[in-house]
Design a protein around this nucleic acid. Structure first.
Lengths: 347, 347
DNA sequence: TTGTACGCGTTATCAC
DNA sequence: GTGATAACGCGTACAA
């Protein structure tokens, strides 16, 4: 029995569709008797409201669009996961797009979501270029947009950020406290996908400020650019190892690059922390599973997802409201083996 | 200018909505002149067809539901990712649900997707109980359902599987060829979430058949049950290490458990492959990044996702067709360090 | 407390 | 080639 509609069950119960609709939407005014009669019919005939008709009528959808720049990066995965749970619990569905590090793809994702009549949009990482998002908020002014780990200059867009500057400062200090003298950094990309990420600049800044506070000139040769992916961390570390005076510590702007660096280290017959101390950023699950355990700055991933969902509902309930929010979380240092330098061994 | 509709641009161009609709849907019969005029207006006013109205009219949605049992498991993530790309390329959106290893949640996900009027359903892993899915296909008989790595007895449901029996056989043989005498196995769960997974039984079977072919009695104490998650692999390995006669090789039914086992190994001051050779299953990206690299059976994750998308379109195009498909892929042995036993050292 | 009738934005079927 | 117009299934004034 395909396509059971309001009419079908109205006829079955000898009531009007208005009554049925009221029962389904839990309106107060239906008598207890008719209510239960209708409810039984609904269950028996397997009726489900047609979301398309509903969405058409209410000029509002039920799906939240989520664009993520790389789903295989565990950092993003964790966020998507907590988003999925929170959203589903709120009765919404999650329209997922993986932009695969490509702005072009992110743009087309956005176009698709526009047509899909999403009720809210969450952008994770550097997936959508500023211009494209600007066009979106022009067309869909009422749709709340929340950006995680990237900040837009568009006033309607809320952002959920992490204070990476302070965290990077802490990471660098930690390496110094462990007795490291030549602390290198593998940064995020200065151009292309990922470059607009909030943490990218911030992490570099925190590193610089820490070195400055410690009275160290920051040696430009010790700063190598990566692109947040494993392979680039490996390449960067190879370059650092080729220096005539190689570093005794490396701070990578994210865990994936730190893991790449670790692999280059092993490839060269060296090890962390004995030869080079290593600190990452994100605290992806893998960081605690490898040997040596990766010291890293723990990003509050679940919180980011939960807060995004919460914020969405808030903005959705304030019918008229465009009050964009800027919320800054903080990251905590998690010390594992990769930075546990035997103290007193150094020059 | 919110909510640009067919009417708006029809009025602007002094044509009827029918004409505009025809242009948008690339019908043949519109004159070149009006066509371009309309197209320009569409672009200028930023018109997008309302998918809800479209869905209502055509009695068909644009979203494909995807239920995955654990998005943080990289094996599943990879599949979702390739699905996302394929689906988006086909102009469809992906409604994601993470069932978090809980059938109950999977069921409610399913209910939500039913109401969301999805046009197809992909189930990855052991997320949805048989009964719930049966109810689904009854209500939504025209919706193609594709199950990955789990088989249902429901005739309308297609399945994409991997021949884990053969793969497990190969893995076990590999360990034997490397000179291992006491080959233990960490299996998937015999009850609860994950137990209905296709590979769960198969992998155990392959292991048993290999031992039998080698003329070994399979020692029941060497078979420990896990639940496919990291922690259970760790626990299982601890139990194996506590045996009076401990194994010299362990075959884990998936990589996450193998990694857990590895961690227990280290915890005990032992190492792979020197003390115990280790083989996993899946070939998650992490397997190649850790030290020692994890020998494992490589699952064709991208192929699974792509094939699911392709199959979906096929089934969708055959308007009347319920021809469920059963497609079996194969997994390939990837040898890394964790099983590279120094030959000739053994009893 | 319940029923009637209209409109949401599209597509599809006809007349013109 | 083009334009009216009727559905699609639902929510909701408003009437009863």
């Amino acid at each position: 029995m395909p396509h059971v509609t309001l009419h079908d069950i109205a006829r079955r119960c000898n009531v009007s569709i208005a009554t049925v609709s009221a029962v389904v939407n839990e309106a107060e005014w239906v008598s207890q008797k008719t209510r239960s009669r209708v409810q039984r019919a609904v269950a028996e005939m397997g009726y489900h409201p047609n979301q398309y008709a509903r969405g058409l009528k209410q000029r509002q959808g039920h799906a939240v669009g989520v664009i993520v720049s790389d789903l295989t990066n565990p950092f993003f995965t964790q966020i998507v996961r907590s988003l999925s749970h929170a959203l589903n619990a709120a009765g919404r569905s999650l329209s997922l797009c993986d932009s695969d590090h490509q702005h072009l793809l992110g743009e087309s994702n956005l176009r698709m979501l526009v047509e899909g009549q999403i009720v809210g949009l969450v952008i994770i990482g550097d997936s959508v270029p500023e211009k494209a998002l600007e066009a979106f908020v022009r067309v869909r002014a009422r749709v709340p947009v929340i950006s995680i780990e990237r900040e837009y200059t568009i006033p309607q867009v809320s952002s959920l950020l992490v204070d990476s500057e302070r965290a990077a400062y802490a990471a660098t200090r930690h390496l110094h406290d462990r007795g490291c003298e030549r602390i290198a950094m593998i940064t995020g990309p200065s151009a292309g996908a990922g470059s607009a990420t909030f943490g990218r600049v911030q992490r570099h800044e925190g590193y610089r400020r820490a070195l400055a506070d410690l009275g160290r000139a920051s040696d430009p040769r010790l700063v190598v650019e990566g692109n947040f992916r494993f392979e680039s961390g490996r390449t960067a570390m190879r370059r650092l190892l080729a220096l005539d005076q190689r570093p005794d510590a490396v701070f990578a702007a994210n865990d994936m690059m730190a893991l790449g660096a670790l692999s280059a280290l092993r490839e060269a017959g060296l090890s962390a922390p004995d030869d080079i101390a290593l600190v990452g950023f994100d605290n992806v699950p893998m960081a605690g599973l490898i040997a040596p355990g990766l010291t890293t700055m723990a990003m509050p991933m679940a919180e980011l997802g939960d807060e995004a969902a919460r914020l969405l509902e808030t903005q959705l309930s304030h019918k008229g409201g465009h009050e964009a929010v800027r919320h800054v979380f903080s990251a905590e240092l998690v010390v594992r083996e990769s930075s546990l330098r035997p103290v007193g061994v150094l020059a």
